[in-house]
Design a protein around this nucleic acid. Structure first.
Length: 369
DNA sequence: GTATGCTTTCGGC
DNA sequence: TTACGGCCGAAAGCATAC
């Protein structure tokens, strides 16, 4: 019998806005809204993050800035532009602190990470709670920020546990508590269950994770196929074997920008696209990568989102390939989409390989064997 | 019939 | 009342391979 794993999920609370509160304590207690301004008109753009005071008024990430201003018009609210470089620095400092507390570590995003602490706390969940408390205190001491922590026997449970109580929460779900903890949650909370899958499950009377756990496994396999059926069966019981491990390079690098005004003028579009290509290219090269796929994105006047991708046989790191492919994809897209004007344009590189020709030459391969 | 890979869209922050 | 960013990985749809 192998002792249970113990996994922590750490989630920094309303991260961008909390960083701003720390930098300027005079805004503490007020609604704080961190915004991405598009530069098109004074307040065009969207909310990136809002603190919990602002959330009480309905302000949340993704809504238009003008709408957030209306919701907060009678309040002494603070609107700030995003300062990503600054948040990245704070994040890096905290991620390094967290890494030092883990047997294995996995950063998920700028404000989230998994820590496998099984060995250092000897599979003892009470010790894990104490460790999490110490970690919270350290983050407060070093970076003056709060976070929410979830503890469980795997990534699936710890992630849901972290979201259970926030901000500044700490939720422990012991192995024997897992099924009861998950049972009342909607199936959509499970990783791998999106809107479409949720609809299909509902059709079969499966609404909660508990419903899914009780459901006949053979029938699940009939509905979703073997791989997914077995996966859902396990997930509903809180069984998840995904290891906590450092992530490699990103899977894609992209830039997107709102145009000064909506247009269908290919010349105007390609001028911006060329700039975006250069920026994506320099990031790709900086990381020592080759790309095998080039993608474009277009957001139209009606806010509909479209994308096109082209994948090559061989990878490259040439700017000219990025530019000419993006151009070709935009030309083709505008022909297929002959009515609407373009509002935002984006460029993406993906399908990466290391660019140093470290590939084993055939002769080296022969010598090794 | 199931797995895999590519493409497009969705959704969280 | 309308309003509207930038970036990433997940989800979903489809074609083809096994």
């Amino acid at each position: 019998m192998v002792a249970a794993r113990v996994v922590l999920h750490v989630d920094l609370d309303y991260f961008y806005a909390q960083c701003e509160e720390r930098e300027d304590p005079s805004i503490g207690g007020k609604p704080v809204v961190v915004c991405v301004y598009s530069g098109r008109t004074a307040d065009s753009g969207a909310v990136s993050t809002a603190n919990y005071v602002a959330r009480q008024f309905g302000v949340k990430s993704g809504i238009p800035i003008v709408l957030a201003k209306r919701m907060l018009k009678d309040e002494d609210a603070v609107f700030l532009p995003v300062n990503r470089k600054f948040y990245e620095k704070v994040s890096n400092s905290i991620m390094n602190l967290l890494r030092g507390h883990a047997d294995s570590f996995e950063q998920v995003s700028i404000d989230e990470a998994f820590l496998d602490v099984t060995k250092r706390i000897n599979s003892n969940f009470e010790e894990a709670r104490k460790l999490a408390q110490r970690i919270k205190e350290e983050i407060m001491a070093k970076e003056k920020l709060t976070c929410s922590v979830g503890i469980g026997p795997n990534k699936l449970v710890s992630k849901i546990a972290a979201g259970f109580r926030k901000p500044d929460g700490l939720t422990v779900v012991k192995p024997e508590e897992v099924e009861a903890f998950l049972a009342p949650l909607p199936v959509g909370k499970l990783y791998g269950v999106g809107k479409k899958t949720e609809k299909v499950m509902e059709k079969f009377g499966i609404k909660t994770v508990g419903d899914l756990a009780k459901y006949n496994t053979e029938k699940l396999i009939e509905i979703f196929g073997k791989t997914l059926g077995v996966y859902f069966h396990n997930a509903a019981k809180g069984i998840d074997e995904e290891p906590v491990q450092e992530r490699g390079r990103a899977e894609s690098l992209s830039r997107i920008k709102t145009l000064k005004e909506d247009t269908r003028d290919l010349k105007v579009i390609l001028e911006e696209v060329d700039r975006l290509c250069s920026e994506v290219h320099s990031r790709v090269v900086q990381q020592g990568l080759n790309f095998r796929s080039v993608g474009i994105m277009a957001v139209m006047t009606d806010m509909s989102v479209h994308s096109r991708t082209k994948t090559f046989e061989n990878s490259t790191n040439e700017l000219e390939v990025l530019r000419s492919t993006a151009k070709e994809l935009f030309e083709r897209f505008l022909r297929q989409q002959p009515e609407l004007e373009v509002r935002r344009v984006g460029v993406k590189a993906s399908n990466f390989e290391e660019s140093q020709k470290k590939q084993t030459r055939l002769i080296d391969f022969a010598n090794k064997t």
